[in-house]
């Protein structure tokens, strides 16, 4: 970083654009990035509802979700693979629910392989899916668009 700082002082900095101004702009941006990161890690993603916090079973389920690489095929809030359905609300969706999820995890279904999990592991995975479902709704089917190119639910679901 010493060398990097040397660049940012006058000798190696860019000419014509104002070395000092350039340095200030660069560090202001980095400072704002640090501030934004701190807020994102803490208050801005704090849950308004305690249901959003994962309990022990759900945290074990989250680890299993990674170990089985479920994200290769499935999504939360539209983020993940496209071979299988989005799982954000699978435990609360009409015609599905925790038992449905548990059965699919145990036996597989269509393209979904049998994961050969234990009953405890299946329970942990379902606990995780229930915790995710408690965070919000996806997909969004509200078409209340604003003049600013946003939509109402984007404003109302903010914690």
């Amino acid at each position: 970083m010493v060398a990097f700082n040397k660049v940012l002082d006058g000798s190696n900095g860019p000419s014509g654009f104002g070395v000092h101004r350039h340095r200030v702009v660069y560090f202001v941006l980095v400072g704002l990035f640090i501030l934004q990161s701190g807020l994102t890690y803490t208050v801005s993603t704090e849950a308004a509802s305690p249901a959003v916090e994962l309990n022990d079973a759900a945290q074990r389920g989250e680890a299993l979700y990674r170990e089985f690489n479920c994200t290769a095929c499935h999504q939360f809030y539209g983020l993940g693979g496209h071979m299988g359905p989005d799982l954000t609300n699978v435990t609360v969706a009409a015609g599905k629910g925790p038992d449905f999820a548990r059965a699919v995890i145990f036996h597989g279904s269509g393209l979904m392989p049998n994961l050969a999990v234990s009953k405890e592991q299946a329970d942990d995975l379902v606990a995780f899916l229930e915790a995710v479902a408690a965070t919000g709704t996806y997909p969004i089917r509200s078409l209340d668009l604003t003049p600013w190119g946003t939509y109402e639910q984007m404003h109302s679901d903010a914690k």
């Binding site: 660069y26 941006l29 208050v43 997909p139």
Partner: peptide, 29 residues
Amino acid sequence: GLGFTNLLFGWAHHIYPVPSALWIRILAY
């Protein structure tokens, strides 16, 4: 500078549907 600013602050368009703080998403927008 524009690219760097987007690198630092323009990421949240990936998570518009995720119910995080509104300012995170509006800033990215």
